[in-house]
Computed example of a mutant assay.
Amino acid sequence: MGEEFEEHRARLFALAYRLLGSAAEAEDAVQDAYLRWNGAERVAIAAPGAWLAKVLTNICLNRLTSSRARREEYIGPWLPEPILTDGPSELAERRDSVSMAFLVLLERLTPAERAVFVLREAFSYGYREIAEVLDLSEANCRQLHRRAQQRVGERRRFEAAAGTRRRIVERFLRAARSGDLAGLESALAADVVAWADGGGRAGAALRPIVGAAKVGRYVMGLAGRGAAAGYALAQAEVNGEPGVLAFLDGVLRSVFVIETDGERIYGVRTVLNPDKLGYIAQQLVSRGELSHSEGVAGS
């Protein structure tokens, strides 16, 4: 019974993460789905995958309703929990639908709109399948999807190769580390935006920083303070984008996600809230890249 559920766990987590934007909440939702699966009459379940997707989606819809109120009171910009996506997994597939930019845009949607949009855009569900999951009519699902598209608007989609994006980030880091402000600014788009999520748990800018000059000075300041404190940096793929992990004394302190079109960097999203670094630290531990005795500050 448990083995059959495990066959679906990775896909369920990928769905829950996209619906909730929180790895911790996604794990809890998957566990709730397991408990319902464990207590269900198995003979009545003709298609376990579809049954579990429906149960999980409805669990997430209930969680979205309560989490929305919490996020309205959040201190500073809210960003999703970062996750590593370099490797074969349900999260690595359709990377554009797990990017921070995409997940932030989904915050504009109602729970029902978000469910329809994620099932359609990230998992290629047909409207009939979505209707069965949500117990709605196909016409209603089409309307919700159309409304979600209008609210989300046009999304930036770039096809720059991973190597090209990595080289841009390396150039960005070299300039920051060497104190080359002009070189740093040359890697930034004129309308670049930087967001920092401290959630009141870590020092962070409470408003987005806009423009190459301002973002350049902001990043240079972070780099200077980090170097003085002895931070170690490591590159990784985070939410489908080039990322930088910052460690102090072996403890993960922050995660930077760099959004680039292959020519310039147009977005920098920094997660400093230690409550949001637990899952990615677990991923690093499971890979042997971080010891159990280390981890996340304040966790």
Results as ranks from 00 to 15, higher is better:
residue 1 M to S: 13
residue 1 M to H: 12
residue 5 F to H: 03
residue 8 H to S: 02
residue 22 S to Q: 03
residue 22 S to I: 05
residue 22 S to P: 08
residue 23 A to D: 04
residue 31 Q to Y: 09
residue 33 A to H: 02
residue 34 Y to F: 15
residue 34 Y to L: 05
residue 39 G to C: 01
residue 41 E to R: 13
residue 50 A to V: 08
residue 50 A to H: 12
residue 50 A to N: 04
residue 57 T to A: 07
residue 64 L to W: 00
residue 70 R to L: 13
residue 70 R to G: 06
residue 71 R to Q: 13
residue 75 I to K: 09
residue 79 L to S: 05
residue 80 P to V: 10
residue 86 D to Q: 13
residue 91 L to S: 07
residue 93 E to S: 13
residue 94 R to L: 07
residue 94 R to Q: 12
residue 99 S to K: 08
residue 101 A to L: 11
residue 101 A to E: 15
residue 102 F to G: 00
residue 103 L to P: 01
residue 107 E to P: 06
residue 113 E to N: 07
residue 114 R to V: 06
residue 115 A to S: 11
residue 116 V to D: 01
residue 120 R to G: 01
residue 124 S to D: 14
residue 125 Y to M: 05
residue 134 L to R: 08
residue 140 N to A: 14
residue 145 H to A: 12
residue 147 R to L: 14
residue 147 R to Y: 11
residue 147 R to A: 15
residue 157 R to I: 15
residue 160 A to R: 09
residue 165 R to N: 02
residue 165 R to L: 10
residue 169 V to I: 05
residue 172 F to I: 00
residue 182 A to W: 04
residue 182 A to I: 09
residue 192 V to R: 01
residue 194 A to K: 00
residue 194 A to D: 00
residue 204 A to G: 11
residue 206 L to E: 14
residue 208 P to V: 05
residue 210 V to N: 12
residue 218 Y to F: 15
residue 226 G to I: 07
residue 228 A to N: 05
residue 229 A to W: 09
residue 231 Y to N: 13
residue 248 L to P: 03
residue 252 L to N: 07
residue 253 R to N: 11
residue 255 V to R: 03
residue 257 V to F: 02
residue 263 E to M: 06
residue 268 V to Q: 02
residue 273 N to Y: 04
residue 279 Y to N: 06
residue 281 A to G: 10
residue 284 L to V: 10
residue 285 V to Y: 05
residue 289 E to C: 06
residue 289 E to W: 13
residue 294 E to Y: 14
